[in-house]
Design a binder for these strands. Structure first.
Lengths: 334, 334
DNA sequence: CGCGCAGCCGTGAACGTTCACGGGAGCGCT
DNA sequence: AGCGCTCCCGTGAACGTTCACGGCTGCGCG
């Protein structure tokens, strides 16, 4: 019962078209791929036959014989986070410029999803670029010999290439700016749930130390606006003296901004806020968000460029060139 | 001259692994794919040999013989617009649940890119879902017989399936709400640059007429926050009496919100704003954005579901089921 | 002893396309 | 007439993998 109609309807192949048009496979191939060495009338006849039969070439058969289609996998923790969206958009654009295809995977910020993803991805793409939090061993195990470019992560081995995000100077400038405005109690909303302290935290700590202010006013925050709000609440509960806050990223900062408003704290008068990432979103909120800004466009393009070099066997970029530096961009919030 | 090392290093095939391990192709295949009918020690030997040689199976050869890997193409006008990002994320998730792969293409909101995209996509995916503005003829010409699901577009022929966005009721509720608050001069910021008036504009016109208010207070706006700002400025310049505005989408609304602030108009006291889409972004701005909200998650899932049915030959969903209804969600801005 | 069976492995074939090559028809020229 | 060239077109082979089948061993059992 039901509606599926009996035996599988065998795929329409190039043979069928050839037979229908009364020519050979090769002639069909010529017609379809726009080669010459074919008469116009013949070409038209083949094209008509192909349309008639609803023929579409098998990408597998084609890919098998010509090695020219490359597909790269892009893995992001959360597409709904605008930062990753910006990076993805940049990567997409860079890939399109090279005629490559990009399949996107969202790991929902869970390490388990990462290896699950790698498992299926491993056999479906020619190279991988993206964000990973799982161990290098796991990473290697499921990508065996595939070119890989990690973003915002320092690999221990030469097995992986990586794009480094360097915010040291930018964060120092941010802290300097806050200190210059008279702030001495500067808090931070750091990423929560990671084992090691984040590099951004370390940059903050170093910068605070350099300016002689306390670097211990830290609370954790989940990677979301709500997380930022909750984080700010927690931070202020524990350290009411805080007058300025640096956040792990802009999403968290925007949440903090909103929470400050709810708490009746005027920004930047009662509380200065500086985020990290420099998202376009920052210009939409009130007051506009100051941020240690990253060139996401360059980040995505760089990743694609490097993965391309690994793929084609060209000279890969040096680690020194694989860096995206963040710089302070001031707006109304600090 | 340069660094590329002479002749192409022939690909490592299953034969090489077989020879190296002293077994047959089939045994290698068994080992790699985790089938049984193979001795443990043999399996290990094969696995070692494979790793040793850096072997990775060809997805083309594999795909050719087993028909089980399906890839669908997702085409969006602008990944940086959070609305499309939300849809994309939902589609990605739905596809992953089925074990399908999704390659994403960004057409940069240009019709020329659309057919360029279709051209390359046509031979690389099994089905397409997405947003298109080009003609159905062009659409058909480059997708010839491929299952297609169009989003937010009413196809004239049965060649295409489509997900309809129905905001009629939601927009009517929005206008009703504004009228109930005493607004009689309600403007709209419509999409600009399209030939025909947008359905959202028509819903607005009908709703305004139903409530006996002028529906002619309309200005165009580009699809961005800046566009929304400029649009509001233009609208108020021409119709200073406007006290409320409905926008084509939330991005435009957020831009209008910002512009209102700059113009010294307090929202919602001096100017009420209601957007369309119901983005998460709306909750981040001040005041929070009222919006005729769409369930983007359902939208993406629905599209994938339908394309899956077309692909597998299952009973496709009726047009009546392929609808996402928008409903008014009130917040602070109106 | 012979038979059957389970466990392990190998051999052709097939998937659908493009590439390299070869061949026939038609035409112009010597 | 004969040669050569251009224009079309077709034939085997190859791409790298899995599937279907068949074969060989060794063991248990009647």
């Amino acid at each position: 019962m039901g509606s599926s109609s009996g035996s599988e309807p065998r795929r329409v192949t190039i043979h069928d078209v050839a037979r229908s048009a009364g020519v050979s496979r090769q002639t069909v191939s010529r017609a379809l791929n726009g080669k010459d060495e074919i008469e116009v009338s013949t070409k038209q006849r083949v094209l008509d036959a192909a349309r008639e039969l609803g023929y579409r070439p098998s990408r597998f058969a084609r890919g098998l014989v010509r090695q020219d289609t490359t597909t790269i996998g892009l893995v992001v923790p959360d597409l709904l986070n605008p930062f990753f969206t910006e990076v993805a958009a940049a990567a997409l654009e860079a890939a399109r410029a090279r005629g490559w295809h990009v399949v996107v995977y969202d790991t929902a910020d869970r390490a388990a999803e990462e290896i699950g993803t790698l498992q299926v991805i491993g056999t479906q793409v020619d190279a991988v670029v993206g964000y990973f939090s799982c161990s290098e061993d796991e990473l290697d195990q499921f990508t065996r010999g595939m070119p890989m470019v990690l973003i915002d992560r320092e690999p221990r081995t030469a097995r992986f290439s990586a794009i480094r995000i360097d915010g040291e100077e930018g964060v120092r400038a941010a802290v300097a700016h806050l200190v210059g405005r008279g702030h001495t109690r500067i808090g931070m909303l750091d990423q929560v749930g990671r084992a090691a302290p984040s590099p951004r935290r370390e940059w903050f700590t170093a910068a605070a130390a350099a300016h002689g202010v306390d670097a211990g006013l830290v609370a954790g925050a989940a990677q979301s606006a709500d997380g930022g709000g909750a984080g700010l609440r927690a931070l202020l509960a524990e350290h009411p003296e805080v007058t300025a806050v640096f956040t792990f990223n802009d999403i968290v900062a925007v949440g903090a901004l909103r929470e400050a408003r709810r708490l009746g704290r005027s920004v930047p008068r009662d509380l200065a806020v500086i985020g990290f990432d420099g998202l376009a979103l920052g210009a939409l909120v009130e007051p506009p968000l100051s941020s240690v800004a990253l060139d996401t466009r360059r980040l995505g393009a760089l990743a694609i460029d490097q993965v391309g070099r690994l793929l084609t066997g060209a000279e890969p970029l040096e680690a020194a060139d694989l860096v995206v530096r963040a710089e302070l961009r001031l707006a109304g919030s600090a």
